[in-house]
Design a protein around this nucleic acid. Structure first.
Lengths: 211, 211
DNA sequence: TAGATTGTTAATCGATTAACAATC
DNA sequence: TAGATTGTTAATCGATTAACAATC
């Protein structure tokens, strides 16, 4: 398998989602042209993208949906079920747990923590909300790979240090605290919603300037 | 002003956030080297990025934080206060409204809608939650630029058509429904949280494979 | 066979990095 | 003046697009 470039990797989740849809519908083959249309891309790019990991296409017919989907699943490591904890059971934490994490095969959410006493004992999904003081003891008896940070920026500095100290090396970070700058050799996937909103703002501005 | 490439645009919100921080701290100048460190980038790239919109740097001293921040503010159109409505007052919608939209100067959130009768009349921030049936009448007396879609994928198809029909041409979309494919000449900023989670999954997988 | 579509090479395009004179 | 740092050009690198022979 040739190495996969970073721009291909960024596109893999979308390919995966679309191929899953096709697979559910029972569609067995799809052409690069159709995939491109759906991805807002070009047929050439789709073929180039898939070229680097084996041969799933047949001339005149297209790509085998199921095989291609399974291959991307392997590359991404979906089905690995990495064990995760979530910290911050506010609106965003609750939404993320219910609408994204529980729906997903990549990660098993096994613990939810909050520092607000009023929330302790309430549930998110099937999980009791535990106190953040108990993170260390919880993690000492549960091997945890990833922490999902849904707490305000001001709390992330101290929290991330504690998590780092108990061996957690990957983070899904919803705050603006810059974990990459604080730690080396740590995997950080940032979700900067306000950046996304500013991008939208820019595009509206650009459009109205061009009228 | 030279034209701004799309990769520069993607970085502008982060520059803006960092420059705002420096400005709040009263720091007046910053070098490309420092900015690069913070951006996980290179000094060369920072200089190249700023080169395309005027001259804010002084040899030997660095960039004027305030001027540079204001310029980016203008380019992005922050302070335009585009009027927006949000549809779907669940966990994600509530979190987005409180933690992102109300905190932001780009958009003025002026209406929140949900189809769940039980939520009608409750408040998000200072706004009463209204019924989605009332979107058309609300928008006929309030000029709305943008819709923030926090409803399940299954509802977006019909909803987006209604919004399109009353003239809304930009969307901040939290569902996986593909508005770009449905409409032309519409600005869509997608937030695909599950894609982000898959990226994280991939990076963990990649790291454990390389050990 | 004719039509469709892949796999792959080559060409183009754009983004990043390196280098250094200019200048504060 | 010496040190720091920009602005800008040139070189490199990588990603996208075009083209077409191979083949189902």
């Amino acid at each position: 398998m040739k190495s996969i470039s970073s721009s291909v990797i960024r596109r893999l989740p979308r390919y995966y989602r679309f191929l899953s849809e096709l697979d559910k519908k029972g569609i067995q083959h799809v052409s690069s042209r159709e995939l491109a249309k759906r991805m807002c891309s070009t047929a050439s790019q789709v073929r180039q993208d898939f070229n680097c990991f084996g041969e799933f296409g047949q001339q005149g017919i297209g790509y085998n949906v199921k095989k291609l989907k399974d291959e991307i699943e392997n590359i991404l490591g979906i089905k690995c079920h990495y064990r995760a904890i979530l910290i911050g059971a506010g609106n965003i934490g609750t939404a993320i747990a219910n609408q994204v994490v529980f729906e997903n095969k990549c990660f098993d959410l096994v613990g939810v923590f909050d520092k607000d006493e009023a929330k302790i004992g309430q549930k998110i999904g099937e999980l009791d909300i535990l106190h953040t003081d108990d993170i260390e003891s919880f993690c000492s008896i549960n091997a945890i790979v990833t922490a999902i940070l849904c707490v305000p920026k001001s709390e992330v500095e101290e929290l991330s240090e504690r998590l780092y100290n108990i061996g957690i090396r990957s983070f899904w970070n919803f705050s603006h605290f810059d974990l990459n700058v604080k730690f080396e050799n740590v995997i950080v996937e940032n979700v900067h919603l306000s950046d996304s909103l500013m991008q939208l703002c820019f595009r509206i501005t650009q459009k109205s300037n061009s009228l």
